[in-house]
Amino acid sequence: MLPGFPDAAPLAGLLGGVLIGLAAALMLLGAGRIAGVSGIAARAFGISGDGMPRSGAWAFVVGLPLGALLVAWTTGGIEASFAGYLPLVAAGLLVGIGTRIGSGCTSGHGVCGVSRLSQRSIVATATFMAAGIATVAIMNALGLEVLS
């Protein structure tokens, strides 16, 4: 599909991205809010007092696996390989703490903020991308295979 990258799925990626954009647009124009998953999750689970009504936060969080399930059903299953439990716990802790300190994740900063040309979000996105790239590079250099 993409010359030089036999494993890439550019069309599915673009289509998925458009759906994510529509989801965030619906949240913005429909409910007047940012579709930032880390903030909404913190709100749903009572960790943050800010943001949308808790019923809405819950509905959004429940929708995430629901939408993935619909795609899994219609496409005949989704291939995915996950890290082991220990790296998952370490990663989860870092993601949880980091997104709260940094006020957002890939959706709030990366999609909603970057498209708004928010300086804060552009800096945050550049930072977490660089950190992710460095982490994978270092783990590869050390020969740490986490995915099974």
Partner: peptide, 13 residues
């Protein structure tokens, strides 16, 4: 919005 978001994440890999 959440469902569309989840579908997009799944479709996009």
């Amino acid at each position: 919005s959440g469902s569309l978001f989840g579908a997009g994440l799944a479709l996009g890999g």
